[in-house]
């Protein structure tokens, strides 16, 4: 337990350092975050137009869509802001840039993931909080469940992105694959699960766990179901375990490289 606490403190230190590094270019950081916020806002206009004509879609009204977007955006934003290297892992592996982490006495994976902060993801994070305001759910339990679900969604988003990045260990540069798979997860998570049936639905609860970062958390916040919350926590735990196992396996195939490296 003491070891876990030490690693969490270390991750906190890395996050502070990454933030300080980003703050060296404050204008760039803020404009990227604001740009993403506006981008997300424009995307949501589609749903506003939709609900102007229709009352609901598969049981979702505008309030549920706000809640869905709030959880997905906050989860995605948290995962990619604080563990920014998850999105760059495929590239880092392909370029042989893990040497620095491998020579230091800290668990490689968390050290690596928390060593970079993606400024634009701060815009997603902010969007998530703003969208939640529009759900009108201001009771303490709903807010608490919203936050817990978002954190668990962040773990799943981060693990899935990093896991897809691990493909680089096995097939060479998998940056585009990683990006494609991550976008698939994100896209499917932004729709009511009632739209999907059969095999697709099965995939969205397993291989591409979009249900656990979108629809299921919405149900948790709405119904206050601790059973479903346990399900999301289980999905997050499985994602992390699979990531750790695949990363360890891949590390044996790591080939380093001679590219110039810079820690930013």
């Amino acid at each position: 337990m003491q070891r876990v606490y030490a690693e969490v403190r270390f991750a906190g230190h890395l996050v502070r350092l990454s933030l300080a590094s980003n703050m060296e270019y404050r204008a760039s950081f803020i404009t990227q975050a604001v740009g993403m916020f506006i981008n997300n806002g424009i995307y949501f206009v589609f749903w506003l137009l939709f609900f102007d004509r229709f009352k609901e879609i598969r049981g979702y009204q505008i309030e549920q869509i706000f809640l869905l977007f709030a959880i997905v955006a906050l989860g995605y934003g948290l995962g990619h802001t604080f563990a920014g290297n998850a999105a760059r892992l495929a590239w880092l592996i392909a370029q042989g840039r893990l040497d620095y982490y491998l020579t230091l006495p800290r668990p490689v994976l968390p050290h690596l993931l928390f060593s970079y902060m993606e400024p634009s993801a701060a815009g997603d994070l902010t969007c998530g909080l703003v969208w939640y305001v529009f759900t009108g759910r201001f009771d303490a339990l709903s807010i608490l469940l919203f936050l817990v679900c978002s954190v668990l969604a962040a773990v799943i988003f981060m693990s899935f992105r990093a896991l897809s990045g691990c493909l680089s260990f096995f097939i060479g540069n998998a940056s585009r694959w990683s990006s494609f798979l991550s976008n698939t997860l994100l896209t499917f998570s932004l729709y009511p699960m009632g739209l999907f049936q059969g095999v697709i639905r099965l995939i969205l609860f397993t291989l591409v766990p979009a249900a656990f970062v979108g629809a299921v958390p919405v149900e948790v916040v709405e119904t206050h179901s601790l059973t479903l919350l346990g399900g999301i926590a289980g999905a997050a735990a499985v994602s992390v375990v699979v990531l750790v196992l695949v990363f360890r396996l891949g590390l044996r195939r790591y080939e380093s490289g001679s590219a110039l490296n810079v820690n930013i």
Partner: peptide, 28 residues
């Protein structure tokens, strides 16, 4: 052991060396 790879710096590029030294105090 300590290691230095001439082409792979450990210092954080946008921060002063003192910040990386602090990080290393945490790492070790």
């Amino acid at each position: 052991i300590g290691s230095i790879f001439g082409q792979k710096p450990q210092l954080w590029y946008h921060l002063p060396p003192g910040d990386t030294f602090d990080l290393f105090a945490h790492i070790y």
